[in-house]
Design a protein around this nucleic acid. Structure first.
Length: 808
RNA sequence: GCCGCGAUGGCGGAACUGGUAGACGCGCUGGACUUAAAAUCCAGUUGUAGCGAUACAGUGCGAGUUCGAUUCUCGCUCGCGGCACCA
């Protein structure tokens, strides 16, 4: 039994003392930048699932160092945000203090796992020296017109008098007090991420080393759709409604028009609408429902007909009825749709409910599928469509768009699902927005010399009753001078969302102390982009899209030299509880890594977490598995007590094959099979030891194995390395190379099949020919049995693998 | 509803370009060592039949392509993740 606590403590302090993991700066070496998504340091500490990704990147980083790279492998903390703020409100502690405590706790938990982070580059998004540059970038965006003010709805709890995040809602009600949550529009800062939609979409093609599934999620999130805008006049007025549709080919089947209830046009037409009271009542009723609930698929569609107004179909001149309905969203497209119930499912459902006319205009080979029973939503051939009748849908769309353009009644249009990014929160614990509001000059940006704009100390972290940030209550902070005219001005009191700090932290690690610029150009050129980025799939869209957007902006203003921040991306699969549910206090299935380290050691925990299954896949925890990993390490340790050796060519060959496989598997992040390959080797060595009381190869060869084990089990490997008389750390040693000549087999196991079923297998020389193979096969008793009285039709010979004899 | 991913022994999983299904680990069964237990070591462990050689069945279900399919194609079922009335 080796004493894991002693060994692990010894090496952790030795590594630290020797500064073993500081980032290399030998300019002649190639670089490798491998990054974990940095954690939010919550008070609860880590559970056993959190380090899975960190272990994997640590293994990769250690291998790259041994392969002679300068490796940048940093860690930091994303420490702004709601949980720290809520904790502060509850316990009346400055979040600064509680965050520092959580960070210390997290670091402690990470340290005992033996990670090779360069802690001198630690970043913390709440550090003013850090958020100075978050603010600086925001200012640049504002200067370029990418940040604008807009009234955007928030979830408002009228009883708590506070805005709520989506996470704080339960069935559309306030989680804390259970009141109905309202949608309250409030002045906010919004970033025009939509300006970057096309680039964010197209540049996914430049990322071949991203998992396809994540790219697909991003494509769906950006949601490009090509269609047309068509202008409907409102009969008897000067007003018009523009609708967006991807199916302009169905417009001859349009039997009514639907506006989003919030569409401004509804208010403009107030006097024309004869049933305004009914409409107003309906609009008000929707305020009580969040967008999430309102747009839930299970909910039945509702709406109100706007009596007294009609819309004119630009193609037919026909007047159609106008509705407002909950299924049309003001935030997508133009907030208005032309309804074609014959060819759209939602319109069909709505038309059925309210008894509206359904007119088919698309046929499939002259037939109209499901007429009167359901909507036919596929492309087909147009009919009842005047001069466009007889055209196929795709062709018709082109011609009809030209028609719209020629008649100035619309145009082809590309629409994106992605919305502009609401970039402000009415909270205390976030980056202050570096703008002031001056009566004379309007909105004015702070000069760079006044950055960072520090978060002031406050008495209370509670949001104000008006929905404004607590910062609004600090009058000597809010009241300031206009940087432009020197007159009276007020500071912006919204703060930035938690996402802000995580948009560029990977750049800060490269140049963590820079106070002159966001990043030094030379350093950026050497270290950027991040070669390998690893983190949870829950960030597939939001964080990764926001960061890509932020980075592209920095590229556009010349602050960085590369257009995409992360070259390669992998997502880590969750570790679920032993009961198959997500680890959570609620289920009582949380396993603490500290307990595992105490019991079996960090090395065993590391090996087990890599061994338990494919990295990307979710997997159930099993504490017995750690015991198995420990047994494996114990076996390795027991081999160090043997001093005799006699060479065994087969096992030496296996050693070289294992060196090859482990390197390949780490490279492709198949860490489970890397561990299993090492187990197979160790089992072989151990069996040999038991039989011969000797190792099957020299101590030097044995140390090659210890070197490939080292990234997985760094403490034990370092201990064995030292005990074998090595003076320098194993992590300074050079990654072992396999010898090509030793992995070549002279014989192999030839499979003999008859009609595709295996009937025999035999050990044959590697270069065996088909004729020789057949000769050896046909003398096998069990093969003869299956060939007797049969005619051989053909033979399939796969060199190095099998011979299949097909008989009749 | 749409998009993506997946389904292999008692359990986690392996099988890389279509070529021995079940590597490796856990668990379990039997044995050795021990006064005993733990640890360790040895043997076995997909199912059915058989003392055995071996045979048959078998990778969620149903078809198909192929000499040969866990792997490819088509159609389903179930599970997970994401988005969700997106016009």
């Amino acid at each position: 039994m080796y004493n894991h606590s002693e060994i692990e403590k010894k090496w952790q302090s030795r590594w630290q003392k020797d500064n073993l993991y500081l980032t290399g700066n030998d300019a002649s070496k190639p670089k490798y930048y491998i990054l974990d998504m940095f954690p939010y340091p919550s008070g609860a500490g880590l559970h056993v699932g959190h380090p899975k990704g960190y272990i994997a990147t640590d293994i990769f980083a250690r291998m790259r160092r041994m392969q002679g790279y300068n490796v940048l492998h940093p860690m930091g903390f994303d420490a702004f945000g709601l949980p720290a703020e809520n904790y502060a409100i509850k316990n009346k502690v400055n979040p600064k203090i509680s965050v520092a405590e959580s960070v210390a706790r997290f670091k402690g938990q990470l340290e005992i796992l033996g990670f090779s982070y360069d802690w001198e580059r630690e970043v913390n998004t709440t550090d003013p020296d850090y958020y100075k540059w978050t603010q600086w970038t925001f200012l640049k965006m504002w200067e370029k017109g990418l940040a604008f003010e807009s009234n955007e709805p928030i979830n408002w709890c009228p009883s708590c008098k506070t805005g709520l995040a989506n996470e704080d809602l339960e069935d559309g009600k306030c989680e804390r007090c259970g009141s109905e949550v309202e949608q309250k529009p409030i002045r906010q800062w919004v970033l025009k991420i939509t300006d970057y939609a096309e680039r964010l979409l197209n540049d996914l093609e430049k990322l071949p080393d991203w998992e396809e599934s994540i790219k697909e999620m991003q494509r769906n999130w950006i949601g490009k759709s090509e269609g047309a805008e068509a202008i409907f006049k409102i009969a008897g007025t000067e007003e018009t409604v523009t609708v967006f549709t991807t199916r302009i080919d169905t417009i001859y089947g349009c039997t009514y028009l639907v506006l989003a209830p919030e569409n401004q046009l509804v208010q403009k037409l107030k006097t024309k609408i004869t049933n305004w009271e009914e409409a107003a009542e309906y609009i008000e009723s929707l305020d009580k429902i969040s967008e999430i609930e309102r747009t839930s698929a299970s909910k039945e569609k509702t709406g109100v007909k706007l009596k007294g107004i009609k819309a004119v179909n630009p193609f037919t001149g026909e007047e159609v009825e106008v509705f407002i309905a909950d299924y049309v969203l003001n935030s997508y497209g133009t907030g208005a749709v032309m309804a074609v119930p014959a060819h759209d499912e939602r319109d069909y459902e709505f038309a059925k409910k309210y008894g509206l006319r359904i007119k088919s205009v698309i046929s499939m080979d002259g037939e109209i599928p499901f007429e009167g029973k359901a909507a036919f939503t596929d492309d087909g051939t147009l009919f009842h469509s005047a001069e466009f009748s007889g055209l196929k849908s795709a062709e018709a769309r082109k011609k009809m768009i030209s028609w719209l353009e020629n008649n100035k009644l619309g145009a082809g249009k590309i629409n994106y699902r992605i919305k502009d990014w609401v970039f402000s929160r009415q909270r205390y614990w976030g980056e202050p927005i570096p703008l002031v509001h001056c009566d004379k000059c309007g909105v004015v940006g702070l000069p760079e010399s006044e950055l960072p704009l520090r978060l002031p100390e406050v008495e209370s972290y509670e949001p104000t009753g008006t929905g404004e940030s607590p910062l609004a209550a600090i009058s000597d902070w809010v009241n300031t001078k206009c940087p432009k005219c020197g007159g009276v001005a007020k500071r912006e009191t919204n703060t930035m969302p938690q996402w802000a700090g995580s948009c560029w932290y990977y750049l800060r690690y490269i140049d963590p102390k820079n106070s002159e610029a966001l990043i030094d150009k030379k350093l950026e050129k050497y270290w950027s982009p991040v070669d390998f980025y690893v983190g949870g799939a829950e960030h597939a869209t939001r964080h990764l899209i926001y960061a890509r957007f932020w980075h592209k902006f920095l590229f556009d203003i010349g602050a960085v030299a590369y257009e995409e921040p992360f070259t390669k991306l992998k997502h880590v699969g969750l570790i679920m509880g032993e009961d198959g549910r997500k680890m959570s206090k609620r289920w009582g299935n949380v396993v603490n890594p500290d307990d595992m380290v105490k019991k079996s050691g960090a090395d065993a925990l590391r090996v087990y977490e890599m061994f338990m299954g494919p990295f990307e896949q979710a997997c159930n925890w099993n504490t017995n598995g750690v015991v198995g990993a420990r047994k494996f390490l114990e076996k390795v340790f027991s081999l160090t007590e043997v001093n005799n050796y006699q060479e065994d060519a087969k096992i030496i060959s296996l050693l070289h094959k294992t060196i090859k496989k482990v390197a390949e598997d780490i490279e492709s992040f198949r860490l489970n099979t890397a561990v299993s390959a090492m187990m197979i080797l160790v089992n072989e060595i151990s069996d040999y030891k038991v039989r011969n009381n000797a190792l099957p190869f020299s101590r030097a060869d044995f140390l090659k194995f210890i070197q490939i084990l080292a990234p997985f089990a760094p403490h034990l490997s370092e201990e064995i390395w030292e005990k074998s008389g090595q003076k320098n750390s194993i992590f300074i040693s050079l990654w072992p190379q396999f010898e090509e000549s030793k992995i070549k087999d002279e014989t192999f196991n030839l499979i003999i099949q008859v009609n595709g079923k295996m009937r025999a297998s035999l050990e044959v020389a590697a270069g065996i020919s088909e004729v020789e193979a057949f000769a050896s096969a046909s003398v096998q008793e069990n093969v003869q049995k299956w060939l007797a009285d049969k005619e051989i039709i053909k033979k399939i010979f796969v060199p190095g693998k099998l011979l299949n004899i097909v008989v009749k």
